[in-house]
Design a protein around this nucleic acid. Sequence first.
DNA 1: AATATTCGCAACCGCCAGAGA
DNA 2: GTCTCTGGCGGTTGCGAATAT
Length: 303
Amino acid sequence: MGRQPCCDKVGLKKGPWTAEEDKKLINFILNNGQCCWRAVPKLAGLLRCGKSCRLRWTNYLRPDLKRGLLSESEEKLVIDLHAQLGNRWSKIASHLPGRTDNEIKNHWNTHIKKKLRKMGIDPLTHKPLGLSDDLPKQQQQQLEAAPLAVVDEHNEKLPPKEDPEEEEEAQEKQSNPYPTTFDPMEADEFLSRSPGFCTDEVPMIQPHEIIVPSSSSSSASSSTSSSASSSCSSYSSSSASVKAEEALFPFMEWPESMYLMGLDDIMGGDLCVDGGDGRLSSDPFNQYQRSAFDQEAWKLELF
DNA sequence: AATATTCGCAACCGCCAGAGA
DNA sequence: GTCTCTGGCGGTTGCGAATAT
């Protein structure tokens, strides 16, 4: 007896998602949260299988996704993690907030592999290319004994820590360089540790973009209360914007009464205002999202 | 300008592990 | 312990865009 397919594939749509489908999926998940992907397409009115919906959401629609190329520091982190973990893309992705395993996998296959090969490094083993064929055995052993060192943001070898706790902390920093709470000193330190940190990646918020959820707004407030207690994880409508902000600005603590928007920009992963980075306006996905999320549920208030 | 080739990435596929009946 | 179902993972494919000829 074979396994049943994840869904009845007859009559299901395949291939690229349309803006309309995305809209349906986003609306459904923001209102109901993530649960039982098998049921999602039916309930959301989509002719897709649940798996396809899940992938579309996790790889493309999730509010906390960063978009655009990986920064140099992210790339470095991927290389280091790949050396430790191999092709365990989801594990690697878990160390890079806002990046998906698929994105990292693609980036690895299209960019990093080539880069490493150019540098004479085997992307599979992270050791110098031609190690097994060309070098005398003794040299091979020497090289094997000293695999590529983990380097910090300044390309300097990290000295071994004497204190195990300190080492653990250092490892934690290495694997998750983003501080989780806001501390001005720590934020400064974080930025100074990140010479590759590009201001293009910093979402720009203008004062007029700060909006407050309307207390009288029916859809926002009602769905807030109904889904907040749901066991369904993450981006229930209640907390979609907050979660997105937390993900994008992990070192900030947001006042409960205030939410930064707009959601359309968060959803696109670009908070740069007015499409100032060029990508917002050129991305058809963002264009339709602008209208899709033109905030019936949110009352705009000047701050 | 037209055609061929290469590249990048979204989406699909098949397999696996864990949970629950 | 076995079976079924679901979610998740990693590998692969296919298509559109970009670039080369």
